[in-house]
Each structure stands twice: as C-alpha cells, then as structure tokens.
Design a protein around this nucleic acid. Structure first.
Lengths: 118, 118
DNA sequence: GAAGTTACTTCCTTTTGGGAACGTAATTAT
DNA sequence: ATAATTACGTTCCCAAAAGGAAGTAACTTC
C-alpha cells in the first residue's frame, strides 16, 4: 500500500466537504442562478431553473439558508414576495461556478465539433 | 418581466450541462480521486471514496466511461485488476476540481475560526 | 364574490441509492 | 487437496430521495 501525500489527502477531503454542502439535485443550479442573474424571487427561480418543482425549490432553498449560503428576505409588497440572494459566503463560490460555466461552454463546442465531423 | 442577457443565459445553460454530466451522488468524488491521486484500481477507489459501495462504484464508473471522461483498462495481472484513469477530456475538468478543492479548504478554515470565536 | 397571484406545505408515487449475498477466476493458506 | 482470500463485479431487495398534484393562506384584480 503506497503512502498518499497529506497535501492530496487534504485536497480530497475538501472536495468531499463541497460535495456534502452542495448535495441534492438542485443546489448547484440555485446558486448558479443567484450568482449569474443576481437576486431573484421564488417564482423567478422556478421559471429560470428548468424542471424544478415547488417542493424541491423550497426544500433546497431552506437547506442553503441553513448553511449560510443564501439569504431569504420577505418583501413588504402588495402580494407578499420573497427575495433570495447569495450571502457573502455564498458569493465566495463564484470562482467554482465560473469554472463550471467555462468548462460547460467548452463542452458545448466539443459536441458541436463532433456532430459536424461526422 | 425583465430581459436576461444572452451572455448570462449561455453561462447558465452551460452550468446546467455540467450538472447533468456530473449527475449522481458519486461522480464528482470519483473524478476528484482520479484527478488528485492519478490512476487507480477498482478496489483502491472504493477504499479512497468513503461510504461508496461496489454497486454504486461500478454503476457510476460505467456512466463516466460512456460519457468519455474515464478510461477503463483491464490489466493482464495474476489476479485480474482493472485500472481507471481520466481521459484527456476528463482531465479538462481539473480546473473545476481545483476550484472546488480551494473553496473547500477555505471553508474548513472558516469552520475552525467559527469554533474558536465562540 | 370569483378567479388569479405568490409562496409555500402535505400527501402519495416513482426514481434513485444502498447493502448483503452471490458469481467467477485466480492465489494463497492450512 | 481443500478452504480461505483477493479482485471485480452483478443481482435482488429494501430505504431514502425526488417528483407531482393538490391544498393553504393572504392579498388583488375583475
């Protein structure tokens, strides 16, 4: 059994933490929405995130709020609205989200190339 | 309803693609293992990734192989072994994994500070 | 006062995940 | 020679997570 460097192990454990915090099918998309588009209301989020239902949206938002990544504000409007936004801590995920976005854009280009090469 | 810039929308769709490719509970950890530690055998992966069972490991590895992110090689050893490694395409995820790792490390520091501040 | 909007919750079904046991093939221990 | 062990899975069955329809509540517009 080979020894594994402490540095790599620390990195690996850190990634495991991220996995746990962003567990669940929709958390990344919620954070991405708020990161890319800025603060949004409940219904706006549901319209932006394709396929999410009301149940999962509220459940995941609650978990993100508990973990301190998202801030929920009840607005004093005619029909009551609720604003969601990233906390400063949530905004610290921006580099991760941005790397995912740029990989995804490259991925799309790759798919297009594959199709035209056929 | 406000108009959303095409740029933001493209970013958002790209992130959605990443979400789909890395769907499932263990794909990120498998890619992280192979990215951080390099090529590994089936049993090594199971020992590295805390909590994963044989069923999920083989299922997720198969999906990653189908998507071209992981390469599977049956080795011609005494008791047959199987080597898994990232393809070049899989290695292109390194910046994403690294960003996750550095965020996770900062997160750990934050948790430690919170505890000592109490 | 009927219908619509916003922001959820509740209940039930479907999908996904997890674990134990089994299969196979070769190796090592008794 | 036989039993146990290692490596790499698959199968079956149960638990957990996700999805969908409908309900709730407060307020607004028609």
């Amino acid at each position: 059994m080979e020894k594994i460097s402490d540095d790599c192990l620390q990195k690996f454990k850190a990634i495991n933490d991220v996995k746990d915090i962003l567990s669940g099918k929709w958390k990344v998309m919620i954070i991405a929405s708020l990161s890319v588009f800025g603060e949004k209301r409940y219904m706006e989020l549901q319209r932006i995130i394709d396929g999410i239902g009301t149940k999962m949206l509220s459940k995941e938002l609650q978990e993100l709020e508990i973990n301190g990544l998202v801030k929920r504000t009840v607005m004093d409007t005619k029909p009551i609205t609720v604003k969601y936004e990233l906390t400063e801590y949530g905004r610290s995920l921006t580099p991760v989200i941005d790397e995912m976005a740029s990989w995804g854009i490259q991925h799309r280009e790759r798919i297009i190339q594959e199709m035209s090469a056929k």
